[in-house]
């Protein structure tokens, strides 16, 4: 280590002789260490290890004949429709002719709907996801993510039917919170 003994030696000189003051060559490295660790901390915190992850999805084979396809029990079915502006519509079981079981929701509230349905339907639960043309890719991923968050084992992405499409359009025209029936019967 490059250090020079600055203690001035042990031998005492006479009282008249002044001690020549030697300057220390030892540099105080503390601020430099401070700076070094400050920079390290900065780099560690600003570096985000953002390796993207992948969500796996297996599509159903469309070529399977309709009679060979799996039928789902109405009691366990939950159909989720993705509308525009992050609106969600859903109904349980089969869509009633008067659309009385057609309800609106959003991405925050849909989790409870799924959880409730899951408890109620248990193993029969099948979630049918129907994105409309106005829904975004984010909506699609979010709802699939919701499936994995709530551990829904069986779900399917299906094309939307005309009836449902019209219902979504109609209810989006109104306030999304209101029930979506009876617009036709209103004078």
């Amino acid at each position: 280590m490059a250090e020079v003994d600055t203690s001035g030696g042990g031998h005492k000189k006479g009282p008249g002789v002044k001690k020549g003051k030697k300057l220390s060559t030892r540099v105080d490295l503390t601020p430099m260490v401070d700076l070094g660790f400050l920079l390290i901390t900065f780099f560690v915190f600003t570096t985000t290890i953002s390796l993207p992850t992948a969500m796996r999805l297996a599509l159903p084979d469309d070529r399977v004949k309709p009679e060979d396809q799996n039928k789902i029990k109405q009691s366990g079915a939950l159909t989720i429709l993705l509308g525009k502006d992050n609106n969600i519509f859903y109904y349980e079981g089969e869509l009633a002719p008067d659309a009385s079981n057609f309800k609106s929701s959003n991405f925050k509230a849909i989790r409870n709907v799924i959880i409730d349905k899951k408890q109620q339907a248990d193993t029969n639960l099948v979630v049918v996801i129907k994105p409309t043309d106005e829904s975004t890719y984010k909506n699609f991923i979010d709802i699939l993510d919701e499936m994995s968050i709530n551990v829904v084992k069986r779900y399917a992405v299906v094309d939307i039917s005309d009836v449902e499409n019209q219902l979504v359009r109609k209810s989006e025209g109104e306030s999304p919170e209101e029930p979506t029936t009876a617009t036709a019967t209103k004078p």
Partner: peptide, 30 residues
């Protein structure tokens, strides 16, 4: 992308299905 529309996605899925590629992965931020 977050804001890309579903019909565009559907066209891609059609291309996958036509080639019997039913399994794929979607990139997401954790």
């Amino acid at each position: 992308d977050n804001v890309s529309k579903y019909p565009a996605l559907k066209n891609i899925l059609t291309a996958f299905k036509k080639n019997e590629q039913f399994k794929f992965q979607m990139v997401t931020t954790p």
